[in-house]
Design a protein around this nucleic acid. Structure first.
Lengths: 233, 233
DNA sequence: TCAAGGAATATTGTATACAATCTTCATGAC
DNA sequence: GTCATGAAGATTGTATACAATATTCCTTGA
């Protein structure tokens, strides 16, 4: 990790990729990853000096990375006090999920109208990969395939802006999505909910797909209680 | 403007407001304003050195402001080439509007369920203010009241996260919204579309409100052609 | 022992310097 | 006149220094 950041892509590699890499952007992604995996905890203070030392860079790209993470909403920038990993309370989480459900529902609705046959095949293949992971009873493996499933769904709406926005919101709720999958029985239910989404898309039924995707994301009733309980562990 | 930025709020003023002001944040807002009002044009390069000179600060807060604007999507950061005001092509604009319509529809649906009587009264009052502005035949005045109307609608959904997201997307499309109101007849139509939204909310009909708000935002048919034509002026 | 005040230290915000990369300009060859 | 090459100048990315603000620690007095 630290080695990666000390040596941004060389000039030749940049030319090959045609997208030069800035150290600040790599730091942004690395920090976002640590937040998503729980290495850095909600509420934690991100000390510029300590992080600069840790990543082997000056404070400047750290600050620039934190600035981006602040604007993205992953991190809360408090003037003169620094950056703190955003702690999302239950109330706000509910709000975010409500919006996330709407956008994922929209993705599914548009996907049912716009996905190509090849894309639907690919979505189904990912769905099968989810089945394999679910059978292995490994929430982390399922989480990984689940992420692939959702990304394919977002891409399938054929609205690049929506794909991007859904992905961004997805990124912000990653920690809690991971937690959710650790609740007993959730993997099985998640998988069968994906099934309903896939079937509706395959059948070209936008409203059905929208409802299936929305219900999949929303946390209601007992699922909500289980989920809240899981937050306290 | 420059004077404002050279003297961030003093310590006593900060304590009074309980939100200290960073120069970088003021720059971010000032630049965003200039983009929204067309002072800075889409595609324009934002030269750090020139802007630092213009605002009477060092490059550092300019860079931090641009970093935020880049993450917000108002500005495109190209590594080693700098910041360019995002130029939104027709295709992307259509995508953004499609998403915007969904979110505003959601706001209206939730508002029809969650707005208090006082809030509905306030919305109606703003609607009346829109009428006054429309009668004066001044698109800029109507634009201002129109902005108030939409903000009240976003707040009325009682989902803080959605309010924020809708506001953010609204900010990104501000330029084009302003342009749209200059199309002949658009002010009158906009106003009557608001009317439909307000009535549905007053009547407590979520699905009707959602449809009215969504249709209001979406640009379809002849309205689309007129709008595209207005982009070329 | 506890609270208040001041000093020391730490952290954040900004300015400046240096390094890296890009763009423009000038010159020479064909 | 066109094209290629190299130098000069401009701009961006990062490091370092300085200033401003916040936090912690220590001392003193009640």
């Amino acid at each position: 990790m630290t080695d990666l950041l000390s040596h941004p892509a060389s000039a030749s590699a940049q030319k090959h990729d045609s997208t030069p890499v800035r150290r600040a952007n790599m730091l942004r992604d690395a920090i976002a990853q640590e937040i998503a995996t729980g290495t850095i905890q909600p509420g934690e203070h991100l000390d510029e000096v300590a992080m600069a030392r840790r990543f082997g860079v000056s404070r400047t790209p750290i600050r620039e990375a934190l600035m981006q993470l602040g604007t993205m909403g992953l991190v809360e920038m408090r003037p003169h006090r620094g950056a703190f990993v955003k702690r999302i309370g239950i109330a706000e989480l509910v709000e975010m999920i409500e919006v996330m459900a709407e956008l994922e529902g929209m993705c599914a609705r548009l996907a049912a109208r716009r996905m190509s046959a090849a894309e639907i095949d690919a979505l189904e293949q990912i769905h099968l990969d989810c089945a394999t992971a679910a059978e292995n009873g490994d929430p982390d493996a399922y989480y990984y395939e689940n992420e692939r499933f959702h990304r394919a769904l977002y891409a399938g709406c054929h609205n690049g802006f929506l794909t991007e926005e859904a992905g961004r919101l997805h990124e912000r709720t990653k920690v809690y999505r991971r937690l959710q999958l650790r609740v007993r029985g959730r993997v099985e239910n998640s998988f069968s909910e994906h099934e309903a989404v896939v079937e509706a898309i395959r059948a070209g039924k936008p409203e059905l797909a929208e409802k299936a995707a929305r219900d999949h994301v929303l946390i209601q009733g007992e699922r909500f209680n289980d989920f809240v309980a899981s937050l306290e562990k």
